[in-house]
């Protein structure tokens, strides 16, 4: 436990130190990479609540990631073209304010998580995996065939959205925003896992019959976890869209779902800092393997296979040296 805490501190500090050093040595590209790590880690933190604590293997979290992204894209595109979003029943204008966009991203991905969760949590096991994957794919095809917001081509946003008092186009300032949000999400996640709700959630993973026997409804607990999980991933989607200043249906693709899951597993399922470690490792591998070989995903696949078959518990599990409970 102590070793894991030290390790967590190293990851948290490392993710802050790298862009700071890059800032001093004037390497904005490295800052952008670190921002990407922070945002993808945030998406992973979201999934980790459903996956690590609740044992809900969702292969459709790209749905929420994409909804968050499109929440940003749609609002910002209307602000950028000075058109109204709706005229009826009341007029809604677009916005370039990050704060409003975040609220909308949280609300819309939460609504989607509620609907998708309510349907897919009627089942469990392999059904749940396939169904979440299918719902993710449904939104992917919807985004492709809906021409109003770019369709297949995606939607470019020319200026990054604003945050009061900060210049978000400055890489280090935008990084700070994402880093603080990631920290808040990690804090929430750690409090959640120790709270009464978190304990009940972990109990439904380990023994749902018993949870039911003591008078709680596993379905409601799981749905709440799925909702929180989807909202955090949705927020990450909005930030990711802001980082790229571009939204496209690929945010909804099943590969995105798979990658978010890979972050969680590479780092260590159910570990608080697992997604941070996993996302950092993923981006490092992408950067490093991509440099030595065009087909870097081939090597990534082999590495991933090795991790699943031989290094269970992911990076943190291996470093801490204790098998994580895997039920």
């Amino acid at each position: 436990m102590l070793r894991e805490r030290i390790l967590n501190f190293v990851f948290a500090f490392g993710l802050l130190a790298v862009p700071l050093i890059a800032y001093v040595s004037d390497a904005p590209f490295v800052i952008t990479l670190a921002t990407k790590v922070a945002i993808l880690a945030l998406a992973g933190v979201g999934l980790n609540i459903a996956l690590g604590l609740g044992g809900l293997i969702s292969l459709g979290h790209a749905a929420f990631f994409g909804i968050g992204g499109y929440a940003m894209g749609i609002l910002a595109s209307h602000a950028q073209s000075y058109t109204l979003l709706t005229t009826w029943p009341f007029e809604i204008a677009g916005t370039k304010s990050m704060l409003i966009i975040w609220v909308v991203a949280l609300a819309s991905s939460g609504l989607a998580a509620l609907i998708i969760g309510a349907l897919s949590l009627r089942t469990s096991g392999a059904y749940f995996i396939m169904i979440t994957l299918a719902f993710g794919q449904m939104l992917f095809f919807f985004a492709i065939s809906w021409p109003a917001y770019g369709g297949e081509d995606g939607l470019p946003i020319y200026l990054r959205n604003g945050f009061p008092g900060l210049n978000t186009l400055d890489p280090i300032q935008f990084f700070t925003i994402t880093y603080v949000i990631l920290g808040l999400a990690l804090f929430l996640s750690s409090r959640l896992s120790k709270s009464r709700f978190g304990l009940a959630l972990q109990a439904t993973r380990q023994n749902p019959e018993r949870v039911e026997a003591v008078g709680m409804r596993p379905f409601n607990i799981r749905l709440t976890a799925f909702l929180i999980s989807g909202m955090i991933t949705g927020l990450a989607g909005a930030l990711f869209a802001d980082l790229n200043r571009f939204v496209s249906p690929s945010m909804f693709s099943w590969q995105t779902s798979g990658e978010i899951m890979v972050f969680v597993i590479l780092g260590g399922v159910g570990r608080l800092y697992g997604p941070v470690a996993g996302a950092a490792l993923f981006i490092l591998l992408e950067h490093w393997l991509g440099g030595i070989n065009d087909y870097w995903q081939f090597l990534l696949g082999l590495i991933l296979l090795g991790v699943v078959l031989f290094a269970r518990g992911g990076l943190i599990g291996t470093l801490v040296g204790r098998e994580v409970a895997h039920d």
Binding site: I57, M261, V269, F298, G301, L304, L305, V308
Partner: peptide, 15 residues
């Protein structure tokens, strides 16, 4: 468990 199966077969897709 299914999680390991999903991940390993996802890795196979990449390969």
């Amino acid at each position: 468990d299914h999680l390991d199966q999903v991940l390993a077969t996802f890795a196979l897709i990449l390969v």
